[in-house]
Amino acid sequence: MSPPVAVVGGGSFGRSLAQAAARVGQRVLLWSRQPRPMPAVAGDGSIHTVSALPELAEAELLLFAVPSPYVAELADELGRSLDGSHLLVHVSRGLLGDDLHTVSEVLSSRTPCRRVGALAGPLVARNLVEGQPGGAIIGSAFPEVVESVSDAIGGPTLRVYGTDDLMGVEIASALVGLVALALGYAQRLGMGPGTLAVLATRGLAEATRVGEMRGGSARTFAGLAGAGDLIAAVAGDGRPEVEFGRALAEGLGLRAAAERAGAYIEGALLAKQVAAFGRRVGVEVPLSGGLARLMAGELSAEQLAEALMARPAKRE
């Protein structure tokens, strides 16, 4: 019998992943800090909630769906039960610290596991649950990680692509989350399609600059992890980052906006980190910098729009 698939984190995304895996026949172990009723299973598989982290060691593949600030602590705790045979994959849109450390870097330095990866792309909780046709990308230097995620959740309704540019996937996923937040904000302010297109495209260019600085490949940003993910946000896939941006534009505070979005939003912290990183390494990050100041209340939306428009237009 093949080993079960573990899902760490019982938020909406974690539960959807568990459902997607169960749909294709996997036995799923779902760990959550706050036990909630078990999600419904649509396929041949099963979902078992577990309360003790060491129980997850039975799995070979562990999917991490927890907010980035909790990753280190959880990795320390879970790592005590794991060894080199486990494969760790996360779905976080967060980065850590002003050096923009990725979640996979944290996982591989704080657990004995080296075979790590990140799952990204136009993947939203509802699609996973409903089994709508879609695709995702998994970044990992290890072929067995790509293969294992594809086996665990891929199927007739979910195409899973692979790339070995893990760094690119993680930076793209994080920064697209930030651009999605900005898009939600701009939409609520009543900006038209042309404005949103410029915001999305230049936002992606900014993401690519940051990604290349951290050693990612520009090509990844043109793929599912970057452009693909962003197009889904623009098309209105109902993702929480866009919702969060809208709520901010309506004048809600950070906490109230997060409640409305119904998920942890990495972007609130991330904008500041990206801005600090850009300053330190000399990469221009006008959008992230502006968003950081906007969310800190140092800048109004009008001032931000003005500042972005006033930048000298250069060669693209």
Binding site: E60, D76, D83, G84, S85, T111, P112, P143
Partner: peptide
């Protein structure tokens, strides 16, 4: 391991308990 526990380096080159040689890995 990071927690100071002794671990078997063989686990890194094994899948489901079977060690293998894999150039890409």
């Amino acid at each position: 391991a990071p927690d100071g526990r002794i671990i078997d380096p063989g686990t890194y080159i094994s899948r489901r308990g079977t060690p293998s040689v894999d150039a890409r890995r």
